[in-house]
């Protein structure tokens, strides 16, 4: 029952994800036509507009076909992994993305670890010391974190640790695992700080709520150890809303990664998308946007599965009491 329930859940989520991706791809494709002026001009970029090039472009993007057929053909190419060539530099969009993705994934991974470990830990500590000095400090820190955007935090960290103290490099992604870690410490901190505040806040609120529950009191009344109560009773129940917010957190990561990569001059996907927009490189914008969208959908699916594993009430088909 458990297995089949899980399989059904994944299938259901996929059934929602596929149309969602289709809608996104349609929006992304429409970019060509939404750009002001003739789509050929938009795709031409800075290249010379001789009839030969124009004809190649028309053929490449099937611009003489009706709109919906164009979309169908484009989608077919995308599904085969062909995201087209960038206007500037005439490189394969897919290989540009592959080249840049490493930095962004590395950055997001370090930030995720920081956010989950430090965020949940701080939230727990604040909840246990409710009303105390530590709690007030954490809450205040949370307000700062939420209200200062990642690029502001980034510039601040750059100035203090990069320029004044000189402990960390101020730009670039570094080579090799350790060097890269060193280069990405400040960016991932900047990225983590703004998101972490949300995790701290949710963890704290939900811990406080769970600590007042009858089952925690009953566990104490039975003489369970403090560690057992903290982890098996309080934390496990308190993490459900944190996991639920996981999707939002990941989306926050991606949006903020763009700012952070620009601030720290990192060659990641975020800076790639910013470059593409500045140069009106439509194939590149389409490619990066699609990759981001796919990533968000996949992460949400993973979050849903984790959620189901933590809370058996979902698995057994009971949604709310």
């Amino acid at each position: 029952m458990m297995r089949s329930g899980m399989a059904r859940l994944i299938l259901m989520r996929l059934a929602i994800a596929v149309p969602l991706l289709l809608i996104i791809s349609f929006g992304v494709f429409s970019l060509v036509h939404l750009a002001p002026g003739d789509p050929v001009r938009a795709l031409l970029g800075t290249r010379p507009s001789d009839p030969e090039t124009l004809a190649t472009l028309r053929a490449r993007y099937h611009l003489d076909d009706p709109f919906i057929v164009q979309y169908g053909k484009w989608l077919g190419q995308v599904l085969q992994g062909d995201l087209g060539r960038s206007i500037n530099g005439n490189r394969l969009v897919l290989s540009s993305i592959k080249e840049r993705a490493g930095v962004t994934i590395y950055l997001c991974l370090i930030s995720t670890v920081i956010v989950l470990v430090a965020g949940i830990l701080l939230g727990m500590l604040a909840a246990f010391r409710r009303g105390g000095r530590l709690d007030r400090f954490v809450v205040m820190f949370g307000v700062f974190g939420i209200s200062s955007p990642a690029f502001v935090t980034g510039i601040f960290l750059l100035y203090v640790f990069g320029v004044v103290l000189g402990w960390f490099p101020t730009f670039g992604a570094g080579r090799g695992f350790l060097d890269r870690f060193w280069h990405l410490t400040l960016p991932s901190l900047a990225l983590a700080l703004s998101i972490m505040a949300i995790v701290v806040k949710i963890t704290r609120a939900s811990m406080i709520e769970v600590m007042d529950r009858d089952y925690v009191a009953f566990a104490r009344a039975r003489g369970m150890s403090a560690a057992r109560i903290t982890f098996a009773y309080i934390l496990r129940n308190a993490l459900i809303p944190v996991v639920t917010a996981g999707g939002l957190i990941v989306i926050g990561f991606l949006a903020n990664a763009i700012y952070v990569e620009v601030t720290f001059a990192l060659p990641g996907l975020g800076s790639l998308i910013v470059d593409a927009v500045q140069r009106r490189d439509i194939p590149l914008i389409q490619g990066t946007t699609l990759v981001f969208a796919l990533f968000v959908v996949i992460i949400n699916l993973v979050v849903d599965i984790i959620y189901t594993m933590i809370d058996p009430r979902i698995r057994f088909g009971k949604v709310a009491s």
Partner: peptide, 13 residues
């Protein structure tokens, strides 16, 4: 010690 409400006394997870 046993509490009043059987529906909230056990860990739901």
């Amino acid at each position: 010690l046993m509490l009043q409400d059987p529906f909230t006394m056990l860990n739901p997870l």
